[in-house]
């Protein structure tokens, strides 16, 4: 195999990986947006509801969403950072 062909193959392989990362980031962002929207709606409901039982449930749901979002944001930042490093290495 010539060097050119080898680089071409490697490039294609990297592109596949990059594409998978891009898809992953896109999916993560979409899910995080949906979670944020749900959290906002729950905050609005919390202001409107007096029933103790229901308030307890809403508070739990908000905390779940907050923690899920926190974990998601951490993964998102890591992925973005890895992407930036990969790009700078290529340059």
């Amino acid at each position: 195999m010539t060097n050119d062909r080898l680089f071409e193959k490697l490039g294609a392989l990297l592109e596949v990986e990059e594409d998978a990362d891009r898809k992953h980031i896109k999916k993560l962002r979409k899910v995080l947006q949906k979670l944020k929207k749900s959290q906002k709606e729950l905050y609005i409901s919390l202001d409107e509801i007096d029933d103790e039982h229901e308030r307890r449930k809403i508070k739990q749901d908000i905390k779940v969403l907050k923690l899920q979002r926190k974990k998601g944001v951490k993964v998102y930042k890591e992925l973005k950072q890895a992407q930036a490093i990969a790009q700078s290495d290529l340059q």
């Binding site: 998978a20 993560l28 899910v31 905390k63 923690l67 899920q68 998601g72 993964v75």
Partner: peptide, 18 residues
Amino acid sequence: DDEVHDELALEPHEIDTI
């Protein structure tokens, strides 16, 4: 390749804490 759920889902101890 859908890893998003595993990355965001809560662990049992996190559920207990909440």
